[in-house]
Simulated scan of single mutants.
Amino acid sequence: MSRHSESFIAYLQELQTRDRGAMAALRRSVARGPGDDPTVYSYVERFAGTESTADDPRRLALYLVAGLFARHPMQASRSFAAAFGDLAKQRGHTRIETRFVALLEADAESIATHLRHAVSLLEANEIGFDYVRLLDDLSRWFVRDKKAPLMRTVRQHWTRAFYCEALDATEVRTDGASFVSHLIELAAHDRAALAALRQSLAFDPGDFPKACPLIEPLVDPQWLSHDARRRARYLVAGVFALNPIISQEQSLAAALGAVARQRDSESIEDRFVALMGADAENIADHLRQAARLVAADGFAYNPAWLLSDLSIWLNSRAEPAWMDRLRRRWARDFYRAVQPSSDSQKLKTETEGA
């Protein structure tokens, strides 16, 4: 949290105690776009700086936070998302969760509207939150590019904070078997959920808001937003949704090898070699391509095995020895599947006779 943000919130708290007229003006300003109400310029512009433009993300965040604080001046230590998650737990989280997902999907143009509604709900239930942290977060959210890295980071942090508060510990199932059973249940009964999971493949794992209600109940509350185990769940769910059938006996690498054998295509092997060279930063891109090939040819694989492997692969700090063993196993599975059984028998006979 920045000192500038702390100073601004302290200033608002001072206004609350000594200037009721200022607080009334700031409350009214929330009905307009951030920075669009001239009656509150004298309270906020001194913190915006002389070099900021009208649409500067920091300036917009200052105006919005000032209006929200004036409406609900209850400063607390936990984040806005955690406070909203607490509200979801208190009121039965389905409707509040829907609002939260819509908020996560908001861009710089619409975030103010969603936050106004959310803060009104927190005010009605007398739940406070940390305006300092909200100011810092919104300074990143107001960057106009919806896929800006800073905004994605904020969105993922908000997701984890919300669900860690909203979900009862007894609701969270983190083992691989429960995860696969959950995917099978979705495939059988919820086509809309599968569609959302397929859409999530266009985003970084965990960064597509509509997928969050489907996956977060299977994420350990102790895992942070960037935890490889959490990201693996989102990625595996997305690729499963492309072709929701399961084989208990075959890995994804073996399924891709079967595709290469069936198509008699060297390009599939080239893709596999590229996948083997991927690291934690780009494995998701290569895996999406591989999974689409497998889905197109109707082959199945074991998602529990894939989940276990990606929990290592997506970990940028994984031990090199673990990655070496993982890659060797994938290579073995792929090339065994590529080689027809008759060739395997011929090779065995030739080896025995040598």
Rank of each mutant, 00 (worst) to 15 (best):
D343K: 12
Y43M: 01
G353I: 15
E45V: 03
L121W: 03
Q248Y: 03
N282Y: 06
T349A: 13
A295V: 01
T349R: 06
D333H: 08
A202Y: 03
F100T: 09
M74S: 15
A195D: 00
L103R: 01
A24P: 06
L134G: 11
S225V: 05
L64G: 05
S311N: 04
N243H: 12
R18T: 15
P221I: 09
A70T: 05
D136S: 13
S52C: 04
S120H: 13
Q339M: 10
A161Y: 10
L122F: 12
V119F: 11
Y43A: 01
D285F: 02
L293A: 11
A237S: 11
F47H: 05
E123V: 07
V154I: 09
V143Q: 02
F240K: 14
R198I: 10
C164Y: 07
A296W: 08
R160K: 11
A88N: 06
M23W: 00
R233Q: 07
S311H: 01
W322R: 11
D204Y: 02
V338C: 05
A318L: 09
E281Q: 04
A112C: 05
V172L: 12
H226V: 14
V44G: 05
Q90H: 13
L224R: 14
S308H: 13
R155I: 03
H72A: 13
D324F: 09
R133E: 00
W223V: 00
I96Q: 04
K346T: 11
R263A: 06
Q250H: 13
R160L: 08
W141S: 07
F8V: 05
A112V: 10
F80I: 02
Y43S: 04
F272P: 14
G49M: 00
E97N: 05
A280G: 08
F69V: 07
A202S: 08
V294M: 02
R91C: 08
L183N: 01
L60H: 10
H157E: 09
L256A: 09
D207P: 06
H72D: 10
V180D: 11
R263F: 01
S225E: 07
L122V: 10
A196S: 13
A280Y: 00
F240P: 11
A61H: 10
L201S: 00
Q250W: 07
I215L: 08
A318K: 06
L183Q: 15
D168A: 14
R229K: 13
Y43T: 02
A166M: 04
